[in-house]
Amino acid sequence: MTQSDPGRLGWWARLKRPSAKHSVLALAAVGFVGGIVFWGAFNTGMEATNTLQFCVSCHEMRDTVYQEYQYTIHYSNRTGVRAICSDCHVPKDWTHKLIRKIKASGEVWGKITGSIDTKEKFEAKRLELAQHEWERMKARDSIECRNCHSFEAMSPELQKKTPYKKHMEAKAAGKSCIDCHQGIAHKLPKGYKKPGTDDEEE
């Protein structure tokens, strides 16, 4: 087998074989441009899955949590700032975003098998799904909340006294946003009791 007989080479050997025709510059230029095109397309595709329209394109989200979210302050408020699904549920940094997207393939499987394809099924699974998301948020110290909110930016003059006191206590105790703020953009699972609010009735 010689290099002058390329027709008999396997595909891997062909790939490894140095180019006899093209210059290194031409190959580098094609690789560079191709890399930009691939990277751009990949990122554009990934960003497309981060839009509100994409998230509510499935009825599982559109008919349940999306309906509730529209009544919350993260959807409509005095200042016109909106946090969409991905702002809270998808990490901003590339590596963690990619990991989240890969994990989201499990949701595609759920869609195919119809695990929450009716409101009743969704409600039955809401606590489990919510707990997964709360655990994910807790594990990263509620980074998606803290992209916009921080203890340091809370004004003792502008924030109500009680929430300010609770926030400072939470900060001192090393708590994360999601430890207290559950169900802020969606209904809490039926019968769910937030930690720390249990009292003598239980």
């Binding site: 009680t162 169900g183 809490l188 019968g191 769910y192 937030k194 609010t197 009292d199 003598e200």
Partner: peptide, 17 residues
């Protein structure tokens, strides 16, 4: 109870406390 939970009522009000 669910509405009270959703609105964090029990942060400031106990049932009997």
């Amino acid at each position: 109870k669910d509405l009270a939970e959703q609105n964090n009522c029990k942060q400031c009000h106990g049932i009997k406390k």
